[in-house]
Amino acid sequence: MTLKSVHSPILQVEDLCTTFGSGIATIPAVRDVSFSVNKGEILGLVGESGSGKSVTLRSLLGLSRRYGETTGSVYWKGDNLVVRSEADMRRIRGGEIAMIFQEPMTSLNPLLTVGMQIDETLKAHTAMNASERKARAVEMLDLVGIPAARSRLGEYPHQFSGGMRQRVMIAIALAARPQLLLADEPTTALDVTIQAQILDLILSLAKDFDMGVVLVTHDLGVVAQTCDQVAVMYAGRIVEQGAVRQVLRAPQHPYTVGLMRSVPENVPPRTPLYSIPGTPPSLLSLPEGCAFSARCPQKTVLCEQSRPHLTNETGERAVACFSRVETQGDAVA
């Protein structure tokens, strides 16, 4: 689907669909999402709120099952996770595939020390004995850059600051040496200087452990600075995907172009910013044609009648648009 690589992908997602609700009021949160992630590669899933990026991430681990239905396939080492039982998924979650969230305070247990929480993960997913687990816990805290790791094992989450808490969460997530990390807006709640530290940490851990990462974010800057591949989502579908450099240098989908031009970077100060008119469509009443057509500056009659498929002409880029933008390098002046 994406870049042909010498590596074989560890995660291959095909036609993933997640639908919330039941009966008449169903919400098509994710539709026909396909991508793959190689070892040591970081894929950015980018989009605005309601675009389905977080639901996609949760669907990979079967976390959306409780609220709706997921179809399609998620091949993890050749094994389709969509059809696996909840018990199987529990073994995979936190073991081979780990996940971190936006707000560390709500995903850490406030009543257990950090050491106990790492220990818990290791007990569930590895065959290590108590002293090995302790050693690994210290090693992990050290690795994520927490000073005086050994002495901080006995501390509770509230004793850490915001950035440190996010590091703790990463330490817990990575303790069992997962091969894939799913990160849902891991730096959105943090300040820029701390964000830079955490992104660097994720980047270096991905390279050191040869771990694949799916990073969900709304910030194209974060994608530019961290990811290798990117998929842009709109109204539950991927509208453009490819290598980060290519997509950000020469975006071809009008939505990607609009998103990039909305960012006040390299724009003369105090001039009107480009803004995509209108708001995203309701997932309950999606138009028949392209979901972006109502806001698109270059829509045609065709766009309102039928939906463009994600086509992959050059073998490296896929764009779901009938009249893709051909402005090489114009968005980033």
Binding site: L199, A224, L248
Partner: peptide, 20 residues
């Protein structure tokens, strides 16, 4: 520290150590 939209802008960062 503000992430630039330019993918080739990596690596010129001043890294602040520690936190506020």
């Amino acid at each position: 520290a503000a992430p630039s939209l330019d993918p080739d802008d990596k690596g010129k960062k001043i890294h602040l150590e520690g936190e506020l």
